[in-house]
Amino acid sequence: MLITEAPGLIIDWTQMPTYNTIMSIAAGAGLISLVYFAKALMTDREVHLDSWSIAFAVPGVILFTTGLHMTLTWPFAKYFPFDNIIFGETSFGFGVLLLFAAFYLWKRNDKIMASGDAAAYLGKVSRPISLMVVGLGLALIAIAFAGVIFQLFAAPPEEPITGAFAEWPWMEALFMSGMFAVVGVGAVLFPLALREFRLGAPRTTMQWIVGLCWGLAGLGFFLFGALNFFTHIGLIVNTMG
Protein backbone atom coordinates (compact mmCIF):
# COMPACT_ATOMS: atom_id res chain seq x y z
CA MET A 1 0.00 0.00 0.00
CA LEU A 2 1.43 3.36 -1.06
CA ILE A 3 0.26 6.39 0.88
CA THR A 4 0.83 10.00 -0.15
CA GLU A 5 -0.07 13.19 1.63
CA ALA A 6 -1.52 14.85 -1.47
CA PRO A 7 -3.90 14.80 -3.14
CA GLY A 8 -5.10 12.09 -0.77
CA LEU A 9 -4.75 8.51 0.30
CA ILE A 10 -3.42 6.27 -2.49
CA ILE A 11 -3.43 2.49 -1.99
CA ASP A 12 -1.85 -0.22 -4.10
CA TRP A 13 -4.60 -2.79 -3.67
CA THR A 14 -2.54 -5.55 -5.29
CA GLN A 15 -0.55 -5.52 -2.06
CA MET A 16 -3.54 -5.82 0.24
CA PRO A 17 -6.23 -8.30 -0.78
CA THR A 18 -9.24 -7.93 1.49
CA TYR A 19 -12.37 -10.03 1.85
CA ASN A 20 -13.66 -9.34 5.34
CA THR A 21 -16.87 -8.14 3.66
CA ILE A 22 -18.13 -11.66 2.91
CA MET A 23 -16.58 -12.88 6.16
CA SER A 24 -18.73 -10.44 8.14
CA ILE A 25 -21.93 -11.53 6.41
CA ALA A 26 -21.08 -15.21 6.94
CA ALA A 27 -20.25 -14.66 10.62
CA GLY A 28 -23.51 -12.78 11.14
CA ALA A 29 -25.53 -15.45 9.35
CA GLY A 30 -23.84 -18.17 11.39
CA LEU A 31 -24.58 -16.48 14.72
CA ILE A 32 -28.21 -15.76 13.83
CA SER A 33 -28.68 -19.33 12.59
CA LEU A 34 -27.38 -20.71 15.89
CA VAL A 35 -29.93 -18.68 17.82
CA TYR A 36 -32.85 -19.80 15.66
CA PHE A 37 -31.62 -23.39 15.72
CA ALA A 38 -31.56 -23.42 19.51
CA LYS A 39 -35.07 -21.97 19.59
CA ALA A 40 -36.30 -24.61 17.13
CA LEU A 41 -34.80 -27.42 19.19
CA MET A 42 -36.56 -26.23 22.34
CA THR A 43 -39.96 -25.67 20.74
CA ASP A 44 -40.30 -28.08 17.82
CA ARG A 45 -40.23 -31.88 18.16
CA GLU A 46 -39.84 -32.34 14.39
CA VAL A 47 -36.77 -30.25 13.65
CA HIS A 48 -35.50 -30.73 10.08
CA LEU A 49 -31.81 -31.24 10.84
CA ASP A 50 -30.75 -31.50 7.19
CA SER A 51 -31.87 -27.91 6.64
CA TRP A 52 -29.87 -26.69 9.60
CA SER A 53 -26.86 -28.67 8.46
CA ILE A 54 -26.93 -26.69 5.20
CA ALA A 55 -27.51 -23.44 7.11
CA PHE A 56 -24.31 -24.02 9.10
CA ALA A 57 -22.25 -25.49 6.26
CA VAL A 58 -22.60 -22.53 3.89
CA PRO A 59 -21.21 -19.81 6.21
CA GLY A 60 -18.87 -22.42 7.68
CA VAL A 61 -17.19 -23.02 4.32
CA ILE A 62 -16.81 -19.29 3.72
CA LEU A 63 -15.36 -18.61 7.17
CA PHE A 64 -13.12 -21.68 7.13
CA THR A 65 -11.55 -20.97 3.75
CA THR A 66 -11.15 -17.20 4.07
CA GLY A 67 -10.15 -17.41 7.73
CA LEU A 68 -7.60 -20.15 7.07
CA HIS A 69 -6.10 -18.22 4.16
CA MET A 70 -5.87 -15.03 6.18
CA THR A 71 -4.42 -16.88 9.19
CA LEU A 72 -1.72 -18.66 7.19
CA THR A 73 -0.78 -15.99 4.63
CA TRP A 74 -1.35 -12.73 6.54
CA PRO A 75 -2.43 -10.61 3.53
CA PHE A 76 -2.48 -7.50 5.75
CA ALA A 77 0.97 -8.19 7.22
CA LYS A 78 2.78 -5.23 5.69
CA TYR A 79 0.26 -2.59 6.70
CA PHE A 80 -2.34 -3.81 9.18
CA PRO A 81 -0.99 -7.07 10.70
CA PHE A 82 -3.45 -6.99 13.59
CA ASP A 83 -6.36 -7.43 11.13
CA ASN A 84 -5.06 -10.88 10.25
CA ILE A 85 -5.55 -11.92 13.86
CA ILE A 86 -8.80 -10.06 14.44
CA PHE A 87 -10.62 -11.24 11.34
CA GLY A 88 -8.63 -14.25 10.17
CA GLU A 89 -8.16 -16.34 13.29
CA THR A 90 -11.61 -15.71 14.72
CA SER A 91 -13.33 -16.50 11.41
CA PHE A 92 -11.24 -19.65 11.03
CA GLY A 93 -12.19 -20.88 14.50
CA PHE A 94 -15.89 -20.13 14.04
CA GLY A 95 -15.83 -21.69 10.58
CA VAL A 96 -14.41 -24.95 11.92
CA LEU A 97 -17.10 -25.11 14.60
CA LEU A 98 -19.87 -24.49 12.07
CA LEU A 99 -18.54 -27.09 9.64
CA PHE A 100 -18.25 -29.78 12.30
CA ALA A 101 -21.75 -28.95 13.54
CA ALA A 102 -23.08 -29.22 9.99
CA PHE A 103 -21.33 -32.54 9.41
CA TYR A 104 -22.52 -33.98 12.72
CA LEU A 105 -26.15 -32.98 12.13
CA TRP A 106 -26.05 -34.52 8.66
CA LYS A 107 -24.27 -37.70 9.75
CA ARG A 108 -26.23 -38.35 12.96
CA ASN A 109 -29.61 -37.07 11.83
CA ASP A 110 -31.53 -40.29 12.46
CA LYS A 111 -29.87 -41.01 15.80
CA ILE A 112 -30.50 -37.50 17.09
CA MET A 113 -34.19 -37.57 16.15
CA ALA A 114 -34.62 -41.10 17.52
CA SER A 115 -33.55 -39.85 20.95
CA GLY A 116 -36.96 -38.19 21.35
CA ASP A 117 -35.39 -34.93 22.55
CA ALA A 118 -32.95 -33.50 20.03
CA ALA A 119 -32.29 -30.48 22.24
CA ALA A 120 -31.18 -32.53 25.26
CA TYR A 121 -29.19 -34.89 23.04
CA LEU A 122 -27.29 -32.12 21.28
CA GLY A 123 -26.85 -30.26 24.55
CA LYS A 124 -24.92 -33.22 25.96
CA VAL A 125 -22.93 -33.58 22.75
CA SER A 126 -21.99 -29.88 22.85
CA ARG A 127 -20.68 -29.79 26.41
CA PRO A 128 -17.10 -30.95 25.69
CA ILE A 129 -16.62 -28.52 22.79
CA SER A 130 -17.90 -25.68 24.96
CA LEU A 131 -14.33 -25.29 26.24
CA MET A 132 -13.24 -24.21 22.76
CA VAL A 133 -16.24 -21.90 22.51
CA VAL A 134 -15.27 -20.25 25.80
CA GLY A 135 -11.69 -19.87 24.58
CA LEU A 136 -12.83 -18.11 21.43
CA GLY A 137 -15.13 -15.94 23.54
CA LEU A 138 -12.24 -14.82 25.73
CA ALA A 139 -10.25 -14.06 22.57
CA LEU A 140 -13.10 -11.89 21.25
CA ILE A 141 -13.27 -9.97 24.52
CA ALA A 142 -9.49 -9.43 24.35
CA ILE A 143 -9.90 -8.12 20.79
CA ALA A 144 -12.60 -5.74 22.01
CA PHE A 145 -10.25 -4.29 24.63
CA ALA A 146 -7.48 -3.96 22.05
CA GLY A 147 -9.86 -2.22 19.65
CA VAL A 148 -10.78 0.43 22.21
CA ILE A 149 -7.33 0.91 23.75
CA PHE A 150 -5.48 1.14 20.42
CA GLN A 151 -8.42 2.71 18.53
CA LEU A 152 -8.53 0.10 15.80
CA PHE A 153 -11.19 -0.26 13.06
CA ALA A 154 -11.26 3.46 12.17
CA ALA A 155 -12.08 4.04 8.49
CA PRO A 156 -10.05 6.60 6.49
CA PRO A 157 -11.88 9.73 5.27
CA GLU A 158 -11.75 8.35 1.70
CA GLU A 159 -14.18 5.57 2.67
CA PRO A 160 -17.84 6.50 2.04
CA ILE A 161 -20.23 6.73 5.04
CA THR A 162 -17.95 5.35 7.77
CA GLY A 163 -15.16 7.67 6.65
CA ALA A 164 -17.29 10.61 7.76
CA PHE A 165 -16.31 9.69 11.34
CA ALA A 166 -12.56 9.57 10.61
CA GLU A 167 -11.98 12.54 12.92
CA TRP A 168 -13.40 10.51 15.78
CA PRO A 169 -11.68 7.09 15.49
CA TRP A 170 -13.00 6.05 18.88
CA MET A 171 -16.56 5.89 17.48
CA GLU A 172 -15.98 3.01 15.07
CA ALA A 173 -13.58 1.46 17.58
CA LEU A 174 -16.38 1.38 20.15
CA PHE A 175 -18.92 0.06 17.63
CA MET A 176 -16.80 -2.80 16.30
CA SER A 177 -15.26 -3.62 19.66
CA GLY A 178 -18.72 -3.68 21.16
CA MET A 179 -19.89 -6.31 18.69
CA PHE A 180 -16.83 -8.46 19.32
CA ALA A 181 -17.32 -8.13 23.07
CA VAL A 182 -21.01 -9.05 22.93
CA VAL A 183 -20.31 -12.20 20.92
CA GLY A 184 -17.51 -13.02 23.35
CA VAL A 185 -19.78 -12.67 26.39
CA GLY A 186 -22.30 -15.02 24.76
CA ALA A 187 -19.56 -17.54 24.04
CA VAL A 188 -18.23 -17.42 27.61
CA LEU A 189 -21.74 -18.03 28.95
CA PHE A 190 -22.44 -20.81 26.42
CA PRO A 191 -21.72 -23.73 28.82
CA LEU A 192 -24.21 -22.28 31.32
CA ALA A 193 -26.84 -21.94 28.58
CA LEU A 194 -26.60 -25.69 27.95
CA ARG A 195 -28.10 -26.36 31.37
CA GLU A 196 -31.81 -27.16 31.18
CA PHE A 197 -31.51 -27.17 27.40
CA ARG A 198 -34.26 -29.56 26.39
CA LEU A 199 -37.48 -29.72 24.43
CA GLY A 200 -40.36 -27.82 26.05
CA ALA A 201 -38.29 -26.34 28.86
CA PRO A 202 -38.71 -22.63 29.66
CA ARG A 203 -35.71 -20.63 28.57
CA THR A 204 -33.32 -19.82 31.40
CA THR A 205 -31.78 -16.43 32.03
CA MET A 206 -28.46 -17.61 30.60
CA GLN A 207 -30.15 -18.89 27.47
CA TRP A 208 -31.85 -15.54 26.97
CA ILE A 209 -28.57 -13.67 27.45
CA VAL A 210 -26.63 -15.87 25.03
CA GLY A 211 -29.45 -15.66 22.49
CA LEU A 212 -29.58 -11.86 22.70
CA CYS A 213 -25.79 -11.54 22.53
CA TRP A 214 -25.42 -13.74 19.47
CA GLY A 215 -28.61 -12.59 17.78
CA LEU A 216 -28.00 -8.85 18.08
CA ALA A 217 -24.28 -9.02 17.36
CA GLY A 218 -24.94 -11.42 14.49
CA LEU A 219 -27.39 -8.95 12.99
CA GLY A 220 -24.81 -6.20 13.43
CA PHE A 221 -22.08 -8.15 11.62
CA PHE A 222 -24.55 -9.19 8.91
CA LEU A 223 -25.71 -5.64 8.14
CA PHE A 224 -22.27 -4.09 8.56
CA GLY A 225 -20.80 -6.64 6.14
CA ALA A 226 -23.49 -5.82 3.60
CA LEU A 227 -22.81 -2.09 4.04
CA ASN A 228 -19.11 -2.67 3.51
CA PHE A 229 -19.77 -3.98 0.02
CA PHE A 230 -20.55 -0.35 -0.78
CA THR A 231 -18.08 1.39 1.50
CA HIS A 232 -15.12 -0.82 0.59
CA ILE A 233 -15.81 -0.51 -3.12
CA GLY A 234 -16.02 3.24 -2.64
CA LEU A 235 -12.72 3.22 -0.75
CA ILE A 236 -11.06 1.32 -3.59
CA VAL A 237 -12.43 3.74 -6.19
CA ASN A 238 -11.30 6.75 -4.14
CA THR A 239 -7.78 5.48 -3.47
CA MET A 240 -6.73 3.76 -6.71
CA GLY A 241 -4.82 6.84 -7.80
Rank of each mutant, 00 (worst) to 15 (best):
A226M: 12
L136M: 15
L235Q: 13
A55D: 03
P81H: 12
H232F: 12
V96L: 14
A27S: 10
L140P: 02
F224D: 14
A38C: 03
I54S: 08
L216V: 07
L68D: 04
F100G: 01
S51E: 11
G225T: 08
F222A: 09
A144D: 01
W52L: 02
L122N: 06
A57S: 06
V96S: 05
P59H: 02
M132W: 10
F64S: 13
V96W: 14
A154Y: 00
I25R: 05
T231G: 04
W168P: 00
W214Q: 03
S53H: 13
P191G: 03
L9Y: 07
F94M: 14
K107R: 15
Y104V: 01
V35F: 02
K111S: 14
L68K: 11
L63W: 14
M70T: 15
I143L: 05
T239Q: 07
I22T: 11
M70I: 11
I141C: 12
F145A: 10
P128A: 05
Y36A: 00
F229R: 10
P160Y: 12
T21Y: 07
A6R: 13
E46H: 13
G211Q: 06
F56V: 09
L189N: 05
G8L: 02
C213L: 03
G218N: 00
E172K: 07
F175E: 06
T18R: 07
A201M: 04
M1I: 05
V61E: 02
L2H: 07
A154V: 04
T231C: 10
D110K: 15
M113T: 08
D117C: 09
V183R: 02
I86R: 06
M70A: 13
V134P: 06
F229A: 09
L34G: 13
F197Y: 09
P191S: 03
G147S: 11
G184N: 03
I161V: 15
P128G: 06
L192E: 02
L41V: 11
M23W: 01
A155V: 03
L199D: 03
V182K: 01
I149C: 04
Q151R: 15
I62K: 03
W208K: 08
L9C: 10
A201H: 08
R45E: 10
W208F: 06
V133K: 04
G200A: 04
G135I: 09
S126T: 08
K78C: 03
I112Y: 10
A29Q: 04
V210Q: 00
A6C: 00
P169M: 00
I161S: 03
F175H: 05
P156M: 06
I129P: 00
F92E: 10
F76A: 12
L9A: 11
L219H: 01
I112P: 10
P7W: 04
F153V: 05
L68V: 12
T21Q: 13
A40N: 07
